[in-house]
Nucleic acid binder design. Structure first.
Ligand SMILES: [Mn+2]
Ligand SMILES: [Mn+2]
Ligand SMILES: [Zn+2]
Ligand SMILES: [Zn+2]
Lengths: 127, 127
DNA sequence: ATAAAAACAGTAATAATTCTTATTATTGTT
DNA sequence: AACAATAATAAGAATTATTACTGTTTTTAT
């Protein structure tokens, strides 16, 4: 991980991501921090999220309603996206696939990781 | 499937999608058809892709460089996305998961389908 | 053919993200 | 503590994929 100058805002952004299981969007992170950091800029959130992703500290878990959603849990795990309300939920269980295992033998490129995403309706949206 | 008036442009759009394995973007479909349909409008491509998706005739396979990619093969199958050149490749093999099987028992919502996407470098991009 | 409905082209609008630039914060050094 | 070097930031402009609007054309049923 490239070493960077310390920044309290960057730290706060990562803290927000680490303290939630909601797989937030950039906008949501911004809204969370704005009260405590009145001079926070949305661009700063986007920029730092990009840096975190480059450095492997967070991952993207998909796009919901045109907005990218992020996750500070970088351990491979599957997600469920509710196509009605847009919630992104962690799927526990043994749904993790070892990319190497899964595709070795019949794919010639190099596989870095594998995304597994279920779609449907969450419990709340089923009434 | 809701029944719609016939339209040669709509038909052509679906034909393009069905005749390629490249998982194209809206823009690409438009570029393919523009020579034969000089008055084709990009909005028409977007609108019809949406209709096809609503009707279940095509699926979205992910976003590459900010552009949604489509697939006329609606049978569940996994994909590989090259994070360098953006190619989207079908993954053959038995990588299909029965949503019901995969998550029954430990998830309470209703699962419609499951997306499996590998990321890495394609053969061409590895030199 | 006529008329109603649906689809269209062309264009404007929207909205997420990125880029630019002048300013400020951080870190190490005198 | 003041300084210099550089990274990080705010603010807003720019970019760009997608959608909405409006007047016109095509389709299809009568
Ligand atoms: Mn997660
Ligand atoms: Mn495919
Ligand atoms: Zn829901
Ligand atoms: Zn490639």
């Amino acid at each position: 991980m490239k070493d960077r100058k310390h920044s309290r805002k960057r730290e706060a952004i990562l803290d927000v991501l680490r303290s939630t299981k909601t797989h937030p969007s950039a906008e949501w992170v911004y809204a969370q921090l704005k009260p405590s950091y009145p001079d926070l800029s949305l661009g700063t959130v986007y920029r730092n999220l990009s840096l975190f992703r480059e450095d492997g500290q967070i991952i993207c878990v998909g796009t919901v309603n045109g907005q990218e959603r992020f996750d500070a849990n970088t351990k491979p795990h599957a997600h469920f996206i509710c196509d009605r309300c847009g919630e992104v939920i962690d799927m526990e269980g043994r749904l993790c696939f070892d990319p190497g295992d899964a595709a070795s033998g019949f794919f010639a490129g190099s596989i870095d990781y594998c995304e597994v995403t279920f779609h449907g309706k969450c419990l709340k949206c089923m009434e």
